[in-house]
Computed example of a mutant assay.
Amino acid sequence: MIPYESLKILNRPFEEKFKARFAGFLEKGWYVLGEEVSLFEEEFAAYHDEKYVAGVANGLDALILSLRCCNFKKGDEVIVPSNTYIATILAIIQAGLIPVLVEPDSRTYNIDPAAIPAAITDRTVAIMVVHLYGQCCEMDPIMELAAQHQLKVIEDCAQAHGAKYKGKLAGTFGDFGAFSFYPTKNLGALGDAGAVLCKTEADYLKIKQLRNYGSEKKYHNGIIGYNSRLDELQASFLRIKLPYLDEINTHKRKLAQLYTENLNDSFIKPKSDPDFYNVFHIYNILHPERDRLKQYLLENNIGTEVHYPVAPQDQPALKDYLRSFDYPVSAKIHQQTLSLPCSFAHTEADVLGVIRILNKFHS
């Protein structure tokens, strides 16, 4: 069996270091907002050649706190891609704002910059881009639009650790870069974890205040905040894996290249472009008989996933929050997408085996 993912195998190279770090964690006896969190924040900031990173509890909170930091008014509008994971949209709603969905570019599955202007109104305050599957959005025209209309830019980088657009890392374009370190991510913790990359010291200090009950000083609360602190133990595990992030990304890119070069043309594969350094958090293909293809692979002992089976406009939870339910590009992606095994836990032999079985599939 070739599973879609095996976290046990993925984390095996780090097990001894995890155990040693855990022993030190127990010995130290400091469990919340300690030295490990501070050191991870410094190291993750340095990886991005930036100054300010604040660790938070998870990726959803990273998005919510980024929006809260901007002091938007209730009912302001935030532009967001129509094919993102629901967390991106939930963050906007939880922050008291209105999500305005914009279709993706069918070539990249990321938000289409050319479609953004039509969605801008006098209530628009921000663009929340999502670097989906491990590829950056086309940031130059997006940043130009944001400057032209004086909009904030929040980057959802949950799937894009180490991804680049024109040599610049995801999370470093906008006002905030929101990261998830869910265990399956390219840089994954052993539980929930997140971080916000901030451009200014003022925003960094406010995110730190928001994450800790609105407090800058213990028992003194200046603003309404949250309990959203990066766990000290997860920070210590992330510190172990961060130096290997580029190696993990390189491995996934090699596996992705095997798929791209060897899968036949009955599958729509990710497009390559020299402006984009795709880290392939997910290697997805499109096929009109996706469900039958998924079952065929399962019968041949190959695990796959669907990211995502239900489009945002079809989620019952969102029916009262979205302006329109007509997003044909997004609908097609959700109906046809299939994610193939492409993990740090997989070998080239695994992927070649998947390719061999895939190329025998007949519509």
Rank of each mutant, 00 (worst) to 15 (best):
E41Q: 14
Y52Q: 03
L90Y: 14
P117E: 12
L67T: 04
D105K: 14
V100W: 04
C70S: 09
V80L: 15
I64P: 00
L60K: 07
L101W: 12
L39E: 12
C70K: 15
E36D: 14
A91C: 08
T84M: 14
Y52F: 15
V102H: 05
G96W: 07
T121S: 15
P81V: 02
S82F: 03
P99M: 03
Y109H: 13
E36S: 13
L63W: 04
A118H: 10
L63C: 12
L39M: 07
K73F: 08
I116H: 11
G75I: 07
L63P: 00
Y109S: 08
I89D: 00
D112N: 15
E42L: 03
I120E: 11
V53W: 02
I64V: 15
E35R: 04
Y31K: 13
C70T: 03
K51M: 07
N110K: 10
A45P: 06
A62G: 01
A45N: 04
L60I: 05
L101Y: 11
A119G: 12
D61Q: 14
Y47N: 06
G96N: 01
A45C: 02
A114T: 10
K74E: 15
N110H: 09
T84Y: 05
A95M: 02
I86F: 09
D112S: 14
T88F: 03
G75L: 09
Y52N: 07
D61K: 09
A95G: 00
E36L: 01
L60T: 01
P81C: 04
G59R: 02
A95Q: 01
V80A: 13
A54Y: 04
N58Y: 01
G96H: 03
A45M: 06
E50F: 02
